[in-house]
Design a protein around this nucleic acid. Sequence first.
DNA 1: GACAGGTTAGCTGTATGCAGCTTACCAGTG
DNA 2: CACTGGTAAGCTGCATACAGCTAACCTGTC
Lengths: 241, 241
Amino acid sequence: MANCCASIESGKGRHEDGEPIGTNAAGEQKMDVAAIQHLLLERICLLKYKPGDQLKEAKLAREFGVSRTPVRDALNRISHLGLIESRNGVGTVVVGLSGEQIQHVYDVRLELACLLGKLSPITPTPDHLNALEDLLARAHIMRERFSADDYIAINHELNALIASMIGNTILRAMWLQLYVQAASTWHRVAETMGPDVVDALIDELNDLISAVKRGDAESIGHIQRVHISYGYIKVKTVFGI
Amino acid sequence: MANCCASIESGKGRHEDGEPIGTNAAGEQKMDVAAIQHLLLERICLLKYKPGDQLKEAKLAREFGVSRTPVRDALNRISHLGLIESRNGVGTVVVGLSGEQIQHVYDVRLELACLLGKLSPITPTPDHLNALEDLLARAHIMRERFSADDYIAINHELNALIASMIGNTILRAMWLQLYVQAASTWHRVAETMGPDVVDALIDELNDLISAVKRGDAESIGHIQRVHISYGYIKVKTVFGI
DNA sequence: GACAGGTTAGCTGTATGCAGCTTACCAGTG
DNA sequence: CACTGGTAAGCTGCATACAGCTAACCTGTC
């Protein structure tokens, strides 16, 4: 889970990869395209790759123990999200969405949240409840001692949990897509905000747990909407929109 | 526009492509990945490729005058739509969405339609009006003498026109994605329905023209919603949902 | 004639070499 | 010292050969 040896070079510091920096060269097992795709997206969401970072096909290929082809395939499959951009002769860079695009993403997320409970929601199971309470416990721990990485991880898992309650497969796919598009921005904002965001997260988790206990799937979307709106305001402040 | 020599083999008839059937071998100019991607999607929407058809990378590569690599890239970039499926050793086939998936697509489309006028719509220009009136004229001509291909083409262009009035780029992308996902199904239904659908299309175009003349961007989404609902009912009848 | 098993054709997945394009770097000149 | 021009390194885009897999076909047998 805690993969700390991302194959990446940040911004300016072009320090000529001298082969084995942190990557245990032959230690990685072969991954297929789907796994690579998932991993790359996760690294973008979790800020292991930040806007401006350069994703080099050859280096990723070495890390994953495959050739450039599967890596290229994975990059192509996530290209439609607008989070990476490949330019011939230059490289493939992670791009941050423009202020306008962020606004568009959030505007749509606010509207889609209301649909979560409307379009064939999945009734939460005890597993869902347990997962939520686990996240709440972790959030409480973090309240004592803030960690941006932990906050990001909890937020990430929470989103996956919410998505698993969306019965409409198309809506779920869009929900996940919008999350991915917003995640990098929001997490960078949350980093700068510090512990303040934890309280909001705890409030949200408490609301969600309460709704799940009542079996009130309808409310989950609206709780999400509140949380998204909260994040939107913070994002707007930082970006001066 | 009227490209009638699609590189494709339908269903069973595996008639051993003997090189030059209808494809002017070297006549095609080189296309880049984006163009190939656009063309493939259009062919799926316009029923040049129907569910069950096999898209062979090598054959497409020959048609477009490139190697398999750009074709594979294009296929990868549209794979997230769920309209094609590649299986090792078998081939890449066009897949029709399941009944449930169609339902999900239409349920979301109905909701998104209401947002068209809500999230930063673009005020229609005289160009939009002219385009709509052109489509209406073509629809009236088709009323005399029905042509499934013409109906499909008009519907296709209309959708692009509507999309061009969506200011929120994210919403526009989703709108286009949902159209592509629904297009193949709806157009196959429309084929079987025959001339009946033309009257509905004319009604819709008249409503849209009226709204555009009033400068009523808000209404466009709701007119779309009515039209989508009309199609949904027909689709449900055919698919017995 | 029906059926079982091997064989073969053909497809996608992968690896790899080459071409084209950018950019950083460095030497030469004012 | 500032600036310009050339050069080289490195990246993605593309082409191609090969490996692995699947399914259809054909032959031999009962």
